[in-house]
Nucleic acid binder design. Structure first.
Length: 872
RNA sequence: GGGCGAUUAGCUCAGCUGGUUAGAGCGCACGGUUCACAUCCGUGAGGUCGGGGGUUCGAGCCCCUCAUCGCCCACCA
């Protein structure tokens, strides 16, 4: 006798309890598998240590936990390594805000104090995100949790930096970089977002010696102050004669040359270009090529510096206005036109990025990129979906050196010292001698993230974990960080471990709102996963995230879907409740052999078998969404709607043998389905599992189902389908004629080839469509009068509905149906009459078509007969 | 300027090795209080699968082309 189940799943009570039980029992650890088990390793994309769970986290947790639980159930030593990222800029900004609220600033408290405050912040909030991941059900091994600023990982970062420097791949020097004036740091190309914005193009005349002038255009007049040349196309007849002459920077009257370069587009603007090598990336190239002066006219906060003369101290945008006004007074300006153009903005904060000269550290990345390209090309790393390989190649093939230094305080400090005389020392310990200053800069956060798959396993030490679990198996993350993170992990992993850090990259999409809009605070369409968990539980949220999309495509999340899946959770609960409520005594484990089963049982077991192998195929090809939907459909539309309903007959009215067989089938379907469902909805399935007989261990450790092909049974599926269609047909008639649902009716049946089935399973119609009595007509018997008919295959049900059947309406209904049939028949005949189809299509397709045609014709014949009898 | 994705029912989406009558959830209409579930059950309406062309015995699916929307990459002042 099974223990009694509560009426509903109390997820609020159960989720925490179950999670604790799993974690305490050590079941998230790979050690639950035998020592010789194959390893499956997943590195969690580390969320920002002080972050809070958002839908993106919820999605990756769902998918990665699904993968991990699946592999664990398959008996692998499954290890999902969790951790958090120090997230340099993000965290520093948060702490800076806190200091501002306290009325102070990081500059005021100083570096040491600031770092102490940040660590305290991390201690305070660092556990929040990991607790929230637990609420999602994440089965990662928390004993192996890592933080990018841990000693071990920091050591790895230093080793890598020093090694790359020693290999000549890291260099330091003044370069034009993307400068964030607000954050006061350099950022990488990837951290700059470019979007077209309305703007203006300013036309003016550049004074040239001898009273000449060259008209030029610019979008940023303040950079005029840093001009060190005017450039024209060498073949431009308009300006050719001025090449080599001297021009004079407006306001400053600094002398600069007029040069020629084919880079200039004669068609654009005036066809002449002012060159500001220290404030524009294109001009920078031209400046180097023509050995021009580099004059920096801005400070680090984007105010003008002394080189800007009278404009020193002005903000860059104020300067833009001022200098233009001044030039207008001087009669130099020509016109200002509206000119939408691309403005670089900081990914964080949104301020306009300024190209600025500064001394930074760079990584020569091409040699690493070459290896990374090769690894994907030769298939040692596979990207799912495959189309992202193209994006990956394109980026790596055109990669620029990586600016890895940041003028922040929170992060891995670059292990270097700079001497007064300009020498650089790179190492873990300070160099001997005087005059050395430690480097203040820290590394780009992504530098340490790039080592994540192996640094978390103990590298550079040859730890047992590293040996057992590296290379990892799958890197599951969003396509939005394929450059930031995925490519860099591959490059650094190959470079330092000589192995691809993972064999598969699985990319998921972004979560959007239900209208497909990007989620943002300003739009006010943020979705808080924790609220959804509070409301519906983690399982419905996970199931929704897992089944709402396809790999690499964005998901529009709608809380209504979560609600719908919450109902699914309840449905599964009620199915189990029903099955257990109908168990008595000891039911033998496992299934009876197929020949001992009745038709509905053979059908449902065959369907389950098909489902299991389909799910397996879908998992093998990373189609988790489709797999989940199939399990859902099977359980609800086949198991609950049909098998459970049908099983009530043997359960309530059958003999002992029938009861036992049915119980065994019910339990088997449930047992298998819960296992298939567990990676999607771990909590409710684990809870239900505990009520099932024959389940000694926890579901989390149960064996993943394997399709028992001996139970595949096409014939039973076809027969059952016909019976189900008949039931639907009767229900349909009843609804159409508005027959009281409680009213029992009888049926006369021309059974065709289904005589035996109909005799044996007539109870089905009593149960499912309230047909209490079925009379099988002998062949050639006339159909009863005043009845509606249901035709499926070669079976006809006559429902004598005295007083309800309207002959005219019935005739119309039948005619409509006949027309439909005739159309299909003609289509089918055409097909089979086509020599090409018969000879070229696969034989099973042709065979199926023949069967179909035979059935259609049988049905049509019966309807035809009926029409003749009933209608004139 | 390149590249990618999307376009299927009123809404949000599945349908990825081409093959019965294209599906789901929600919404809508009608009907259901007997023993798993009203968090439910039954029935129904609703789609020329963005347009055009092609390949094929057969196309929502493959190829070409166009359109609209979205995203990524790219140095045009």
């Amino acid at each position: 006798m099974a223990k009694a189940m509560p009426k509903n799943f109390d997820f609020k009570e159960a989720e925490g309890r179950i999670y604790k039980w799993w974690e305490k029992s050590g079941w998230f650890k790979p050690e639950v598998a035998p020592p010789d088990a194959e390893a499956f390793t997943l590195s969690m994309p580390p969320p920002n240590v002080t972050g809070a769970l958002h839908t993106g986290h919820a999605l990756f947790t769902t998918v990665e936990d699904l993968m991990t639980r699946y592999e664990r159930m398959r008996g692998k030593a499954a290890l999902w390594v969790p951790g958090t990222d120090h997230a340099g800029i993000a965290t520093q900004l948060q702490v800076e805000k806190m200091l501002r609220d306290e009325g102070t600033s990081r500059q005021e408290v100083g570096r040491e104090e600031f770092l102490a405050r940040t660590w305290a912040w991390k201690e305070k909030y660092g556990g929040r995100i990991t607790d929230q991941l637990r609420r999602m059900g994440a089965s990662c091994d928390w004993d192996r949790e890592r933080f990018t600023l841990d000693d071990g990982l920091s050591g790895a970062v230093q080793d890598v930096f020093i090694s790359l420097y020693d290999q000549g791949l890291i260099y330091r020097g003044p370069r034009l970089v993307n400068w964030s004036p607000g954050l006061q740091t350099a950022v990488s190309d990837l951290e700059v977002e470019r979007e077209e914005e309305p703007g203006k193009l300013y036309f003016f005349n550049y004074p040239v010696e001898g009273g000449e002038s060259i008209p030029v255009a610019t979008t940023r007049p303040e950079t005029i102050l840093g001009d060190t040349a005017v450039c024209v196309h060498p073949d431009d007849d308009r300006y050719k004669y001025l090449i080599g002459k001297t021009a004079y920077v407006p306001i400053l009257n600094r002398a600069i040359p007029v040069i020629a370069d084919e880079y200039v587009d004669r068609e654009f603007g005036t066809g002449a270009l002012k060159i500001t090598p220290a404030h524009d990336f294109n001009d920078y190239e031209i400046g180097i090529k023509h050995k021009l002066q580099f004059i920096n006219v801005m400070n680090r906060d984007a105010t003008m510096n002394e080189a800007a003369g009278q404009y020193a101290g002005l903000d860059r945008f104020a300067c833009r206005e001022k200098i233009w006004a001044d030039m207008t007074v001087l009669g130099l300006t020509v016109k200002v036109v509206d000119h939408p153009h691309v403005v670089p903005r900081s990914q964080r904060g949104g301020e306009v990025i300024e190209p600025l000269m500064s001394t930074q550290w760079f990584l020569k990345i091409q040699p690493l990129a070459d290896k990374a390209i090769a690894a994907v090309r030769d298939g040692s790393i596979k990207i799912v979906p495959e189309r992202f390989e193209k994006v990956y190649f394109n980026w790596l093939e055109n990669i620029e050196d990586w600016c890895i230094s940041r003028q922040l305080w929170w992060g891995h400090r670059i292990p270097a010292w700079i001497h007064q005389d300009g020498r650089i020392f790179v190492g873990k310990l300070p160099p001997k001698g005087d005059g050395w200053t430690p480097e203040e800069d820290v590394l780009d956060t992504w530098f340490s993230s790039g080592l994540w798959p192996f640094s978390t396993l103990g590298w550079p030490q040859e730890t047992a974990d590293l040996k057992r679990f590296y290379p990892t198996s799958i890197m599951e993350t969003g396509y939005d960080i394929i450059f930031f993170w995925v490519a860099r992990m591959i490059m650094l992993g190959l470079w330092f471990t000589d192995k691809p850090p993972f064999h598969t990259v699985y990319l998921h999409g972004l979560i959007r709102d239900k209208f497909g809009r990007k989620i943002s605070k300003s739009l006010g369409n943020t979705i808080d996963p924790l609220e959804l968990i509070d409301q519906y539980g983690a399982d419905p949220l996970r199931f929704t995230l897992a089944t709402s999309g396809t790999p690499g495509n964005d998901i529009n999340l709608d809380s209504e879907k979560v609600e719908a899946n919450w109902r699914f959770v309840n449905k599964v609960w009620q199915m189990t409740n029903f099955v257990l409520g109908n168990i008595e005594g000891d039911v033998p484990d496992g299934l009876p052999s197929a020949n001992e089963l009745d038709l509905p049982s053979r059908w449902i077991v065959s369907r389950l078998t098909r489902l299991t192998s389909s799910v397996q195929y879908l998992f093998d090809t990373f189609q988790y969404g489709e797999a989940g939907r199939q399990v859902y459909d099977f359980l609800w539309s086949e198991f609950a709607d049909w098998y459970i309903e049908v099983s009530k007959y043997p359960l309530y009215e059958g003999d002992e043998q029938a009861k036992e067989n049915t119980r065994r089938v019910l339990l088997h379907i449930l047992n298998t389905s819960l296992r298939l469902l567990h990676p999607y909805m771990p909590f409710v399935t684990e809870e239900l599992w505990s009520y099932l007989p024959h389940t000694k261990s926890a579901l989390i450790l149960a064996q993943w189902p394997v399709a028992a092909t001996a139970y595949l049974d096409d014939k039973s599926e076809a027969e059952m389908t016909t019976l189900m269609d008949l039931v639907r047909g009767v229900r349909n008639i009843r609804a159409e004629y508005a027959v009281d649902p409680a009213r029992k009716i009888s049926a006369s049946v021309a059974p065709g080839s289904y005589r035996a089935n109909l005799e044996q399973y007539s109870y089905l119609f009593a149960r499912l469509c309230n047909v209490s009595q079925i009379t099988l007509l002998a062949q050639g018997t006339a159909a009863p009068d005043e009845s509606a008919s249901v035709v499926v295959s070669d079976v006809t049900f006559y429902l004598p509905l005295a007083g309800l059947v309207d002959v005219a309406a019935e005739c119309e209904r039948l005619t409509k149906e006949q027309d439909k049939l005739l159309e299909q028949i003609s289509k089918s005949k055409n097909m089979l009459g086509n020599e090409q189809f018969v000879s070229r299509a696969r034989p099973d397709v042709v065979e199926r078509e023949r069967t179909k045609l035979a059935e259609l014709e049988a049905s049509a014949a019966q309807i035809s007969e009926r029409l003749t009898a009933l209608c004139k």
